[in-house]
Design a protein around this nucleic acid. Structure first.
Length: 554
RNA sequence: GCACCCGUAGCUCAGUGGAUUAGAGCAUCUGUCUUCGGAACAGAGGGCCGUAGGUUCGAAUCCUUCCGGGUGUACCA
C-alpha cells in the first residue's frame, strides 16, 4: 500500500517520497499517512490542499471504505471489511528469509551456577530465536563459556580439599541430581575462592593448578586423578546446563568452551601479529585502539603468553563461521561489555574485512529486585536462577488450583516479564507483579486464552472460519489484523516486547467485545465463534513465539 | 579526564523513519455486576517527557549546553 501511495505522489507531484503508514486511533481510521505534510515544503502548496488532492486519488484507485483529510493534513484511510479480513488472514512477511543466523546467548561458565542474569538472557535469547525462526531464518543457537581459567582452578582446589586429596572415586558419593551437583561444585568454588584470598600457599597452589588445567587439554590427559576429577565435574556442569534449559523449557544449544576456542583464537592472533595487525607492547600482544573511533587498546595475549578473553572471543567467531558459514551473527551479553565488544569486533573486522557488518552485539541490563528485602534472605547477594524459578512457582501454586498447569503458569509469568521490556535497560523484577494475574502479565494472557478456548469448547467445537465483519466486531477485527505487522516489526528490530504489548492490547480488546456481546445463544453464534477462534489462535501463536504455553484450561 | 548508555504519571515501563489530544500496567478513588470463566469492563485524578537553547509549519523523538544516575577505560571474564 505504501508503494501505491508513493506512486500516486510521484504521478501527482513528481516527488519521490518514502511513505510511512501509521496506525492512528480507531476514530481516525485504520491507516494514516503524513506524506502531504512532507510534501508541503517541496511542492510549495498548503499541506491540506495537497492532502485533499491526494486523498481523492487514493479514494479513486483503491476502493477503500473512506479516505479523509484531518488536522493539518493527515490522510486517514478507512478499510473495507473485506480488506480488514485479508489483514487478519495474512501471514507475517519473513524478515530473514533463508538467512543463516547465529545467535549466541546464555553463555554460562562451567563450574558455576546460573544466576538471574543468565535466566534473563537465556529466556530472552530463546524468544529471539523463536522470532527469528518464524521470520524465515536458518537459525543456529550457540553458547560460549569458560571451562578453563582461574575460577576453575579455585573450584578444583576446593574439591581436592574437600576430598582430602586427589580421589576421583569420591565423586561417586555426590548426589546424582544435576542441580545438586551444580550446587556442590559452586560450594567448592566458594571454598577455593576464599582460600585464594586468605592463604598465600593456597594461592600459589591454585595459580599452578590453573596452568595444570590448561595442560589437561593440551596433552589430552584424561587419566591422572586430578584430570579425572576435572573432566567428570566439567561434564556435570554441562549436564546441569541442559537440565536447567529443560526446566525452563527452552532449547539447549552447542556450547563453545574456552578450552576449544582459545587455541583457535591463538592461531588467528599469531597470524595477524605476523601480518602486523596486532602489535607487541610491554611484553603483551595488543590490538591498538583508535582515538578517533574511541576504541580502547586491548590485550589479546598477556605478557605471560596466555590468551585473554579477547583471543577466545576471536576463536568463537572463527569457529562459528567455520561451523555454520553464517550470514549474520548476533550475540547477547551484559551491557558492561559494550565497549569491550566494540574492540573485539573491530579487531575481527581488521583481521578479516569480509566479516564487516555481519556481527551485531546486543546487550542486556541487570536484573534488580523490586522487593529486595523479601528476596534477599532466600537469594543472597548473587541470586541463583533456580531460586527465582522456585519462588515464582511457590507463589503460583498459592493461586492456581489445577496442579497440572503450575509449571506452565510459572514459566509464562517469568518469560513474559523478561520479554516485555525492551532490551538494554535494567529490569525491575517484582515477584508479586510477575505472578500477578491481572494487568500486563503472562498469566493474564494465558487466562485470556483459556477463557476463549472454554467458550469454543462449550459451543461444541463446530467453528466456521471468519468471513464477515459486523459493526460490533470492527475494533477487534482490526486489532487481529495488526498481528502480522507486529511480528514483522518485532522481528525486524529484534524487539519482542512489541509482541507483548500487542497481545495485551488484543486481549483487552477482546474482553471489551466479550463484555458487550453474547456469543453462545446469540443469533450470530456461528459467526461470533469464528471470531473467538481466530482470537484464540492469534493469542496462542503470539504466546508461542514468546515460548509461553497456552493451556486450554486454567 | 575521555567514551558509551540512560533520565516520560507516585512506582514499573511503552511511545516505529518527526505529527492529530503523550499512552499502558500497578497503586489511589468511583461506577458496572444474581458473570457464555469478574483473573473482567467503564470512568476519574495524576505529566512544562531532567534543564536551557537551536533546527522546523510541527520535537518526548533530531542537534548543542548543563544537571543527575549507570557502565567502560591494556595484561579479569
Amino acid at each position: 500500500m505504501e508503494q501505491k501511495i508513493a506512486q500516486l505522489v510521484f504521478d501527482e507531484f513528481g516527488q519521490q517520497v518514502e511513505v510511512a503508514l501509521t496506525r492512528p486511533d480507531a476514530e481516525f481510521g485504520d491507516y494514516a499517512t503524513n506524506v502531504a505534510l512532507q510534501l508541503a515544503g517541496k511542492v510549495g502548496k498548503a499541506p491540506r490542499e495537497i492532502a485533499e488532492q491526494l486523498a481523492s486519488k487514493i479514494r479513486d484507485t483503491d476502493g477503500f471504505a473512506d479516505v479523509t483529510v484531518a488536522g493539518p493534513g493527515f490522510i486517514n484511510i478507512h478499510l473495507e471489511p473485506q480488506q480488514l479480513l485479508e489483514l487478519v488472514k495474512s501471514e507475517p512477511t519473513p524478515q530473514y528469509p533463508g538467512q543463516v543466523i547465529v545467535l549466541e546467548y546464555s553463555c554460562p561458565n562451567a563450574f558455576k551456577e546460573l544466576h538471574t542474569g543468565h535466566l534473563y538472557q537465556t529466556v530472552f535469547g530463546d524468544i529471539l530465536s523463536r522470532l527469528l525462526l518464524v521470520s524465515g531464518a536458518k537459525l543456529q543457537r550457540t553458547s560460549f563459556g569458560g571451562d578453563v581459567g582461574l575460577h576453575v582452578a579455585k573450584c578444583l582446589y576446593g574439591m581436592v580439599q574437600n576430598f582430602g586429596g586427589e580421589y576421583p572415586e569420591k565423586l561417586e558419593t555426590i548426589d546424582t541430581d544435576p542441580f545438586e551437583r551444580a550446587r556442590w561444585i559452586s560450594e567448592r568454588y566458594v571454598e577455593g575462592a576464599s582460600a585464594y584470598e586468605d592463604n598465600p600457599d593456597a594461592k600459589a597452589t591454585i595459580d599452578e593448578l590453573n596452568k595444570t588445567i590448561y595442560g589437561f587439554h593440551d596433552s589430552d590427559d584424561h587419566e591422572s586423578p586430578l584430570a579425572k576429577i576435572y573432566w567428570e565435574t566439567r561434564q556435570w556442569s554441562f549436564d546441569y546446563f541442559d537440565a536447567f534449559y529443560k526446566l525452563i523449557d527452552v532449547d539447549s544449544m552447542p556450547y563453545y568452551p574456552e578450552s576449544a576456542t582459545a587455541p583457535t583464537g591463538l592461531k588467528v592472533v599469531k597470524e595477524q601479529l605476523a601480518l602486523g595487525k596486532l602489535k607487541e607492547s610491554e611484553g603483551a600482544i595488543v590490538f591498538e585502539g583508535d582515538e578517533d573511533k574511541h576504541l580502547h587498546t586491548r590485550v589479546f595475549i598477556t605478557s605471560k603468553g596466555l590468551p585473554t578473553y579477547e583471543t577466545k572471543d576471536i576463536g568463537v567467531i572463527w569457529q562459528e563461521r567455520e561451523d555454520y558459514h553464517f550470514d549474520h551473527r548476533y550475540l547477547i551479553t551484559g551491557n558492561d561489555q559494550r565497549e569491550y565488544m566494540r574492540v573485539v569486533f573491530a579487531a575481527a573486522e581488521t583481521f578479516d574485512p569480509s566479516l564487516s557488518g555481519t556481527m551485531t552485539h546486543l546487550t542486556n541490563g541487570t536484573v534488580r529486585f523490586a522487593d529486595g528485602k523479601k528476596m534477599s534472605s532466600r537469594l543472597g547477594n548473587v541470586a541463583r536462577a533456580i531460586d527465582v524459578v522456585d519462588i515464582v512457582r511457590e507463589k503460583v501454586a498459592e493461586i492456581v488450583e489445577d496442579k497440572s498447569i503450575i509449571e506452565d503458569v510459572t514459566l509464562g509469568a517469568i518469560k513474559y516479564v523478561f520479554a516485555k521490556y525492551k532490551l538494554g535497560g535494567d529490569i525491575a523484577f517484582d515477584i508479586e507483579e510477575t505472578v500477578s494475574l491481572q494487568g500486563n502479565s503472562g498469566p493474564y494472557l494465558q487466562y485470556a486464552h483459556a477463557r476463549a478456548r472454554r467458550i469454543l469448547e462449550k459451543a461444541g467445537g463446530v467453528v466456521v472460519s471468519l468471513d464477515e465483519v459486523r459493526d460490533e466486531d470492527r475494533l477487534l477485527v482490526r486489532k487481529l489484523g495488526e498481528y502480522s505487522e507486529t511480528i514483522e516489526l518485532a522481528a525486524k528490530n529484534l524487539e519482542p516486547h512489541h509482541i507483548c504489548n500487542y497481545l495485551f492490547e488484543l486481549a483487552q480488546e477482546f474482553n471489551r467485545y466479550y463484555e458487550k456481546n453474547q456469543v453462545i445463544g446469540n443469533e450470530h453464534e456461528q459467526h461470533r465463534l469464528g471470531l473467538v477462534a481466530t482470537y484464540a489462535d492469534t493469542l496462542r501463536a503470539g504466546l508461542m513465539i514468546l515460548g509461553i504455553a497456552a493451556p486450554d484450561k486454567m
